[in-house]
Design a protein around this nucleic acid. Structure first.
Lengths: 181, 181
DNA sequence: TGCGTATAGTTTAGTACTGAAGTCTTCAGC
DNA sequence: GCTGAAGACTTCAGTACTAAACTATACGCA
């Protein structure tokens, strides 16, 4: 990775973009810059969240389930099938995750007595408290990432991302979004 | 998820943001909007890339290895250790991935005769051709996502993402970035 | 030359996921 | 109220990963 100091790219992102220009000159560098920054940023944030979660004693998988239940609203109950759709997982994976979370006391699993085919996964008080804890930590971290940007710049960023998201949702309609972020 | 039509959010993103405001009113909604859009966009794009790759006959894992070799530049050779660092995987995982890719004819594995501890993973012509094919498809897709945005808007988006990335790299220095995107 | 340590990569054991097969509950039709 | 089909979840078999143990080569130094 050693390079001539005069042209040494400052970041790994620049190295990547330079390599792309070298290998594929006909690709629009601005498009590639946006996509590459987006993927790198996501990756880094994901790693950072993982660390925070580990420090707080839960896994990323458990956190996703907690968040999905909270976003669903009171009384914080969903079936395995609903969870699977929201999380973009198979029902089998949800069965395994919920097994672990019941052991950890974050959720309970019970049969719906009105319709015994259905299973109800419900957030416990401990689960809700864990959620609060994680969200506060994450919000602090996220605010830090954006601290350099003024209100107008944030609005421009949010707008750009939203418009890309609308496009991708049009283009790829059935790729059900897991409740991420 | 049924809601009053008058306030029915148009997208799943808005549902998520509304839920966050409801459950956690003290969080800055603009920050949450940026982070949530970013994660959703990444997820959708990831799914879209996965489909393209499947259609072209390789997996996402194989694609990551091809890209890392190409970005490294001619003669498109790296050792398992370098690949592991770039990809954010363990050396063990690289061993397994390369096993599959050798079978598929995308790369070759050989000993460095000057230093027999080292193993050289080298892109084959077939691997390079596959890379070209994938990049062209991906570039078309990415350009489509950005087609609504003017040059100034793209610059603002790229700038915002880059500044977030710089921040996260400062805050989380050792989370080596895999060569993603 | 030969020993000890460091380095590069592979193998092994264990975890989390997927797709498919299986189990149990409900409901419609007779 | 029995039977068959449909639906919701779980179990099973297989895949890809990680951490840790292992193997083999290289290097420093007497």
């Amino acid at each position: 990775m050693e390079q001539d100091p005069a042209t040494d790219p400052v970041s790994e992102l620049e190295t990547h973009l330079a390599a792309f220009q070298r290998e594929f000159p006909e690709i629009d560098p601005q498009v590639e810059a946006i996509v590459a920054a987006l993927f790198r940023l996501h990756r880094r944030m994901d790693v950072a969240y993982g660390r925070q979660l580990t420090a707080l004693g839960i896994s990323n998988a458990e956190w996703e389930v907690l968040r999905t239940l909270v976003v669903a609203g009171r009384p914080y109950r969903l079936g395995p099938g609903e969870l699977a759709r929201s999380l973009g997982l198979t029902a089998a994976a949800v069965t395994h995750r919920v097994d672990r979370m019941v052991t950890d006391g974050l959720v309970t699993r019970s049969r719906d007595e009105n319709n015994r085919v259905r299973v109800i996964i419900e957030l416990t008080d401990a689960g809700r408290e864990m959620w609060d804890l994680v969200v506060r930590e994450a919000a602090r971290f996220e605010a830090g990432l954006l601290q350099d940007l003024g209100s107008g710049e944030r609005a421009a960023l949010a707008d750009g991302l939203r418009r890309m998201l609308e496009r991708v949702e049009e283009t790829q309609p059935d790729a059900a979004g897991r409740t991420e972020g």
